[in-house]
Design a protein around this nucleic acid. Sequence first.
DNA 1: AATTATTGCAACCGCAATTGT
DNA 2: AACAATTGCGGTTGCAATAAT
Length: 256
Amino acid sequence: MGRQPCCDKVGLKRGPWTIEEDHKLVTFILNNGIQCWRMVPKLAGLLRCGKSCRLRWINYPRPDLKRGALTEMEENQIIELHARLGNRWSKIASHFPGRTDNEIKNHWNTRIKKRLNLLGIDPVTHKSIEHKEKSETNNMESNNSQNYEQENIVIGRSESDHQTARAEAKEERINEVIYETSNLTNNYEMLCGAGLNMVNCYSPSFSLEDSVNPSTSIQDDVAIPQWYFDSVDSVISWNSFNQLDDKELFFSEKRQ
DNA sequence: AATTATTGCAACCGCAATTGT
DNA sequence: AACAATTGCGGTTGCAATAAT
């Protein structure tokens, strides 16, 4: 026997979330954290499936989210990361504290793609479109060394430039690993000390400052309802849930 | 003012990886 | 070890807001 199914989808609400639903979700998670998404809607009193609750939490009411448009600097960094990682949005998003993979993916599809096309760069290969066409012709002629030379001409690099660039890229990657490691350590320390039961939340970038004073991470032009900050008041906890007999929980649901 | 086209974003869907029984 | 539930991810869709005609 495996586990209980995520949800049967019968009688569950779909579509945009209402303020009341957000309130219930935030109240529950701020008070209790997350141990099992499947149980969150049941315990929070929501007619949504766990998957929907998870997605909503990640993309909207999370207190550590950075709001507002992506900056040009962020945009350039996304392009650089996309060239290295491809469409691995969650990996790309992990480089941007407070940004979600969905947000970055949407921004890529709606803006950056266009921007690159206007600049004559293929958003998939990150190469000059002019060069792409030429290299396709060259491929038909089966001449790989010429392609390489052509690439260097288009990008404007000599072989020695490439060697320098490769060395720089290697160093950059080492620095990146160091940076990510220190970030993880900071986040872990914050989670241990924050007082909120958020250890199991999906939130690789939650900062100590944000957890102590949620309003500091939110831009002034975005109004956050007062209930958001009044929510830390336990109603149902995972402890009380854990004390419940599994059968009792599911039988009572079936009786409804 | 009415209609149509475009844009941007939130949410859904299906699949793969991970985890629990 | 095998099976099934759960989670996380990326692609896609639906829809509201806005712009263009």
